[in-house]
Design a protein around this nucleic acid. Sequence first.
DNA 1: TTGAAAGCGGTACCAG
DNA 2: CTGGTACCGCTTTCAA
Lengths: 354, 354
Amino acid sequence: MSNIKEVAQRAGVSISTVSRVMNNSKRVSPELAEKVRTVAFELGYNANQAAQSLRGAKSKRIAVIITSLSRTFFTSVLEGINKIADDCGYTILLAETHDDLTREIELVNNFVSQWVDGIILASSAYGKDQFTRNYISSLARLEKKGRRVPVVTLEYAFEHSDIDAVVIDSEKAAYHAVTYLIEQIGRRDIVHISLPSTHFMGRQRITGYLRALHDAGIPMRSDYIMQGDYTTYSGYRVVKLLIQTGKHFDAVFCANDQMAVGAILACNECGVSIPDQVAIVGNDDIFAASLVRPSLTSIQVPKYELGMSAMLRLQERLEEDAPHRQRIVTLDTQFVERGSTLKGYQEDLKNLVW
Amino acid sequence: MSNIKEVAQRAGVSISTVSRVMNNSKRVSPELAEKVRTVAFELGYNANQAAQSLRGAKSKRIAVIITSLSRTFFTSVLEGINKIADDCGYTILLAETHDDLTREIELVNNFVSQWVDGIILASSAYGKDQFTRNYISSLARLEKKGRRVPVVTLEYAFEHSDIDAVVIDSEKAAYHAVTYLIEQIGRRDIVHISLPSTHFMGRQRITGYLRALHDAGIPMRSDYIMQGDYTTYSGYRVVKLLIQTGKHFDAVFCANDQMAVGAILACNECGVSIPDQVAIVGNDDIFAASLVRPSLTSIQVPKYELGMSAMLRLQERLEEDAPHRQRIVTLDTQFVERGSTLKGYQEDLKNLVW
DNA sequence: TTGAAAGCGGTACCAG
DNA sequence: CTGGTACCGCTTTCAA
């Protein structure tokens, strides 16, 4: 890999000229341009991006900070981000927080000092305490060389902030799912397996669940809300316990698909028939939902689009000069009925992209 | 985010001194050091990494180039890489090739011009043609500022090359799996669903499959080798077709788990009992193998360790001065028996990490 | 122990 | 249209 100096010498022109040719920035005579291009090609010249960043305050690099790659959800989001980033000539710096806020803050600082142009963040900053509020407001003021480093959050939006977000209305989706179980499937004793209580989306889903019960005039029972931890096994364990203790329930609404898959496996194992005795609804519609039997009714979240949308949002921010107030893009979910709520559902793999 | 100049001014010292303090590079009087540290902290100073790279020819960044994030396999590998990279203070630049060699080459060049310190690569360079050979030998000569940019390949090693690799002996694993089907389960009419024919690992698995048949004295039948394309649906389609055309077979060995899951779903759907009528073995042991029913017997590939190992290898290369010949780390696979080959297998979710 | 100054590889302004 | 030059932020050598 050679540098611009070598190219300039070999082509017998000035460094400025080489730069102009490589960036098509100003008019250069055809002959010179041609010569420079040839030499550059021969030498396999590629502009050093460290130097470009240093000079121009642009790195064409963005950071993507997610909680964990093992959450299939984020893998799809990441693919969406990557698609658009590629198209726009951005490279992705990837990191995982594993739900650790301290780590998240470290990562953000580190990325800013790497001069990324922007950050896409799945934040774990759910708290209302002063420390968290300070962090969130600092996020809106990240900068390098006097230029803002814009942040776009995934899944949920910070309140009272200028930070853009691409979100899902989880409350509404949960409400819809539970209402469906009540009205369409005729269930009343609906268990909810939730995410860890600190999780923002988890709380939204609980709210939606409760509102649906309330609107249907079904009294809420706090012992019907069981906390899971994202994993398949936690869903399995909860449902198995429920069955073994003989508690009556005729439906389960899970805060994610992994736990819902666990719930299905538990029912199958105990001879509880789905959907006759227990109907099950998940959340996210990851590919595993189509794989289990019966297949899982779920709330389809446009994960790939979520990623694309976040990157597009970021890209817009990067291109606009004037600062703007917070813009929140809300993506629609779609309710997908399958065998875990529909009797005699005709299984079909054709639409599975996996 | 401020720069070193500001810190120096505010602390009333020279830039050199600040640099020395921040890097603990040379002795600085305690008082000055203290003052500098305080000011740096107050200003939230973080050394600009673009400048550091430019100066020092190290970026503390490595590139990870994989084929596709949707291959669950790579997600786990990526987690392993990330774990070690984090520990060593490296940041990951991520990209997907989607099995496109041209794209792969582009990405490699781009990353070198970004001055990554090293590259971990899941290559699609399977061909023997001159173009491919040139590319492979160029990979061994990547450099920035006179320093080698080492490459470590995942899954398979280039022949006649200095490029390190972390691999799996797919041929042996496939041989083991098929021999198991023959000797332990007593099957003879074993179908193999392969990967696209250009895929190196796919070819190795075919070789292992054929050798096992040969050693058992079972004549090979070319119509038993069916080509799949990684996806669940392709496995499903192939097996369904086999059943519908009434061709006899009593076992299926699939080149990956996704296709094996498809095979299981097809059998279930057609009322073909597993493992009584058809035994099924997959490859990779991704989490879905534990999710389907019956659960899938598979070849467990240490994906996370593969990633860790690759990053450790790269790290070693980065720290050593003298060039070395190719070093290949081969990781062992483990054969995991489950319900798709074992009658009356007791399903258990406890060990599933998902 | 400290400071000044030379570059790393580009870009962009200014003069010719 | 072309070349010279200052500078981006940092590290490191050389002098003081």
